[in-house]
Design a protein around this nucleic acid. Structure first.
Length: 121
RNA sequence: UGGGUCGGCCGGAGUGGUCGCUCGACGGGAGGUCGUUCGCGGCUUUUGCAGACGAGAGGAAAGUCCGGACACCACAAGGCAGCGUGCCGCGCGCAAGCGUCGGAGGUUCUGGGGCAACCCAGGGCAAUGGAAAGUGUCACAGAAAACAAACCGCCCCGCAGCGCUCGUCAGAGCAAAGCAGGGUAAGGGUGAAAAGGCGGGGUAAGAGCCCACCGCUCCGACAGCAAUGAAGGAGGCAUGACAAACCCCACGCGGUGCAAGACAGAACAGGAGAAAGGCCCGCCUGGCCGCAAGCCCUCGCAAGGGGGUGGAUAACUCCGGGUAAUAGUCGCAUCCUGCCUCGCAGGAGUCGGCCCUCCGCUUGCGGAGAGCCGUCAGAUAAAUGACCACGCUGGAAGUCGCGAGACGGAAGGCACAAAAUCCGGCUUAUGAAGGCCGACCCACUUU
């Protein structure tokens, strides 16, 4: 399952729009904010890792781990969503399995997934 | 020679599996075009491919301290502001800064002396100008913390009078608790720090109030290149700490940084502002650019000058991406040389692959060399990795044993930190093995 960078949200106004018009929910490690966009054939995602998380190395690692989580669940994500995942400070040194669990729980509760998720491959 | 401890420098973390990201070029598909023997081929453009191949963070990429390349600003004057540096000498460096160098003061530790304050010697440490120019801060505790302070205690005076003594029973004297006023910084207690220390005199009690010694402050012959030291003299003692808070002083510095800047891009102008200002330049002085045409007044023979009116043009600033373009392009990717000069060619080097020759031998590995092919980090909400297993380190529980110990292997740990135009220097952070250098200690050997 690939995850090219063309799915990334890059414009700062996209982030602002999701923050302003979308809904959000906070978990233990992340905040998930999302907004419907029916014109999209697939989905778009953005990541936010603030300086509160740590230095550049820590921020980069959390971003990569988040990309890995999203990549692993790409097939389950319903098309037409724009969503932003904001890393909270606790995620700086969290185990990967717990981060994934937290993100999946948020995604399910916000209806990001297509249907009851099939068992992970 | 061996071992150990400490310090400095170099070094920059292993293996495999599954999956992923960015870039390059290759192949495939599609379009265009040219050729065609109608099979297809050449060139070119473009898009996606869960296509194959190759490459892909550092010694500090960090801090942004210094120097340079490169680009723009009007070659950029003076002052302020801002930024940087900060004991002295010597050496290196343009500078930041550096030094197994020498010295000065400070502070701290150890040893010695002293009742103590403090002094002497040795070692360590530090961004070590200024805290009597000014502002600010100093928690908690404590009565009081910076133009210091009276809680307890001590002392004096007054009121009061438990009670005691004497008594000629009239009274007299002493006098505790308590209350009011005052003195006092010796003692207690608090604190990181309590207004110099100790001894003596002195006093109602005390106090540099006075005296000796020690310390301190000021002046300072003289010594030293200097930091600074200091004979001597004066002063009863003032001046708590922080300048890595602002600040003051001295010295140094064109500014802005690839978000520079160029192209697409039309500039003989797309929109908005700007109603006289804008720029150098954050502020002032100074300078440069601009303040249109038209009209009126005025000076002048004239060219032209001055003033007013006028209007929204100018300098300048900001925004946008419809056309065009588009996940904008270039700048921007090893080095050198050449040019038919800006994208090609040649050469050199790095790494990888294939193959050949030679050498060593553990006989399938290591080393050397030649050839061919490929490659040279280039992201931009920012790729260069994620996960798992092994590995290294670590040694818990538990088991065995009288015990010494043996078996056992859990948790934890495997750094600091990520390019952002490029190069050089500096500083700071930091992990294993291993290597080098220096100091000290111990043992042995030789002289």
């Amino acid at each position: 399952m690939r995850l090219p960078s063309s799915l990334h949200l890059k414009e700062s106004r996209d982030f602002a729009r999701i923050k302003e018009k979308g809904r959000s929910q906070a978990g233990r490690f992340f905040v998930l904010a999302l907004l419907r966009d029916e014109t999209l054939a697939d989905f778009r995602f953005g990541l936010v890792t603030s300086k509160r998380l740590g230095n550049a190395v820590v921020r980069n690692r959390v971003r990569r781990q988040l990309r890995e989580i999203i990549r692993a669940h790409r097939a389950e994500i319903a098309p037409g969503w724009q969503f932003v995942t904001i890393a909270r400070w606790r995620s700086a040194d969290a185990p990967f399995a717990e981060m994934e669990q937290d993100w999946v729980r948020l995604a399910k509760r916000q209806g990001l997934f297509l249907k009851p998720a099939p068992p992970a491959p």
